[in-house]
Amino acid sequence: MKYLLKSLLKTIPVLLLITMIVFVLMRLTGDPVSLMLPENATAEERDTLRESLGLNDPLPVQYLAFLGDLVKGDFGDSFRYNMDALDLVLERLPATLELAIASMIVAVIISVPLGILSAIKRNSVLDLFITGGAVVGKAMPNFWLGIMLILFFSVTFQLLPVSGRGTLAHLVLPAITLGTGIAAEMTRLIRSSMLEILGQDFIRTARSKGLRETVVVNQHAFRNALIPVVTIMALQTATLVGGTLITETVFAWPGLGQLLVQAVNLRDMAVVQAATFIIAIFVILSNLSADLIYRLLDPRIKYE
């Protein structure tokens, strides 16, 4: 409990640092006014708008004002939508969570059996196929895979909808697109972790007791091999979020990723702040939960 509390307290400076980095970067890389007004807007129009958006104050003043509002849970209003940025972000969160969970399921369904199989059949043709496939899966860019899946399953065979969100069928292609890269990473990890465990003494003991190979693999080896996999799954949260930016754009999936991409393009600062903040909380929480699950899986791990 003390550990949990301590970890949660540690997240505060991390989150502050993130808001500061995002704040400075967004302001250094472009001026929202130039993106909001047409080319032929006059200097006067630009100034009026800049003033009304509060962009004329010095950066530190702007940042402090931002922090003051942040304490009250107010990220400011979106320039583009004229509405509360945090509301916008929370509105999109369910769509992104749906996609992320579905992708994780796809990744687990693919990687667990393949990882185990390639460890058991080490150095066989099958193993080569699986590890080779994992390299290919990891190397394939999301946007390319997404577009290819659309062309194949939606345009040519017309089996699945092209884009949008609604039915379960809409979820299939984006989840495969996003899940593939993660599956590749996890397959390789499960394989190496299984190989390490399979070579250990307690496995030899289990075998020498005359246990069937399936029992050895499933009950003795796999549980232990899971520990590093849980870490990688938690670390994949960040990859997953990065992936949603592209996957959601390709599939017109109305989630946080698409919102963030557009907000960055338009320098919609409040939305970028709110979105990165929420994402940061998710990443931190998933890392923390990985720590906790560790303990469940392996009671020998103690927290200090």
Binding site: F143, I147, V162, S163, G164, V250, F251, A252, Q258
Partner: peptide, 18 residues
């Protein structure tokens, strides 16, 4: 009115009658 930011996805929707 649908929002489909990716060009090729928009074209694919057109080509599937979406």
């Amino acid at each position: 009115f649908r929002a489909i930011p990716e060009d090729s996805t928009r074209v694919s929707e057109l080509m599937t009658g979406g």
